[in-house]
């Protein structure tokens, strides 16, 4: 390759960079005349059948602004992205973190306090967080096909002792998986490893994410699959199928609350607050349950009948602080016990 020098190479590279920078500059000067609110969220939220498009239309009708969603893979990717971007982030609002991520996000200083009025939230949520506003919640539950399993198990204990085929998600890569890990700790405490081992004996597989598990179950891959209490509502409303049901467990269920917060580096906190208030308004709360398939956070939200038939579990679990500080230890315990 001989005579070609590093100097020439440097010139080439710098020419390329100049061109790139020029193009970048051009694309950024196309500023909108209305203020723009940038919301980071996860992919399925803004898919055409997700809540995003309808929420955008409803919010833009009144805000004199334009709402821009930027979607990443999932809740934890929202956290990672804002963390990597630091103060250069474009986000005004982070939408789609959950109670397991709240504490880490707060400790990293990525969000600022909101001034949204929370009095409209359902009393049972008992919500008073200064940084995060809940926009939907759901209980983790095991779903079964009542045509195949006429008499379901009635407790976590019964499920573990049974020989029913179970599919759940990996707690290292999936939110329901993490929820299940929390569930096991809430019910069994230090005794969880022995129970994990027992469950491993009749676990078909542990999948990376929710849909792999759920689609395998729908294709007959197991008797039970870990999902949400709201899953049967989807089948009833969208498919008219009533055989899929959630098993109600005596020990109580773990709830996942999805939250939104204002980025610490947002330059339009007022508009962001307006959006948070909109999220818990009756108008938005009517849209979210039937598009994101979760439960509304306000009482008397307008819902299809199918939601009345869902099971109403007791809530058990841990605070966000407890979740954040114990998570790694619990994960190690799980991978040790379940890999044997």
């Amino acid at each position: 390759m001989g005579r070609f020098t590093f100097q020439t190479f440097k010139i080439r590279i710098s020419n390329m960079l100049i061109t790139a920078a020029a193009l970048l500059f051009l694309s950024q000067t196309q500023a909108a005349d209305k203020p723009e609110l940038t919301v980071y969220t996860y992919d399925s939220f803004i898919s055409e059948w997700g809540p995003g498009p309808q929420l955008q239309k409803a919010f833009e009708a009144n805000c004199e602004c334009s709402l821009k969603f930027i979607a990443v893979e999932d809740g934890v990717s929202i956290l990672n992205r804002t963390r990597i971007e630091g103060k250069k982030t474009k986000a005004d609002v982070l939408l789609g973190l959950d109670n397991a991520l709240i504490e880490t996000t707060r400790q990293l200083g990525l969000v600022q306090q909101h001034n949204t009025n929370l009095s409209g939230l359902s009393a049972h949520l008992n919500w008073s967080d200064k940084h995060f506003v809940p926009f939907d919640y759901g209980y983790f539950a095991f779903i079964y096909d009542s045509n195949k399993t006429p008499v379901p198990v009635t407790s976590l204990e019964e499920l573990i002792q049974s020989d029913a085929q179970v599919i759940y998600q990996d707690p290292r890569t999936s939110t329901p998986g993490q929820g299940f890990m929390t569930w096991m700790k809430a019910v069994y405490g230090d005794n969880a490893p022995a129970q994990w081992q027992k469950l491993a004996g009749h676990t078909v597989t542990v999948t990376k994410g929710w849909w792999e598990a759920y689609s395998m179950f729908l294709e007959g891959g197991s008797d039970y699959v870990l999902s949400y209490t709201t899953s049967p509502a989807y089948h009833l409303i969208a498919e008219g199928k009533s055989q899929y049901k959630a098993a109600l467990f005596k020990e109580g269920h773990i709830a996942q609350t999805e939250v939104a917060a204002i980025s610490r580096y947002s330059d339009q906190p007022e508009l962001a607050n307006q959006f948070l208030s909109f999220l818990i308004s009756p108008e938005a709360q009517k849209i979210i349950p039937v598009t994101n398939w979760m439960l509304p956070v306000i009482d008397h939200a307008e819902l299809p009948e199918a939601f009345d038939q869902l099971i109403q579990p007791e809530t058990i679990g841990f605070t966000p602080e407890q979740l954040a500080s114990n998570r790694n230890q619990w994960l190690r315990e799980w991978r040790q016990a379940a890999s044997q």
Partner: peptide
């Protein structure tokens, strides 16, 4: 893979990057 027993390095890297950061 079917569970934590059958994990490869590439999967472990993914998990370390993604969830634990």
């Amino acid at each position: 893979g079917g569970g934590p027993g059958s994990t490869t390095l590439e999967v472990a890297i993914y998990q370390a990057l993604k969830y634990d950061f």
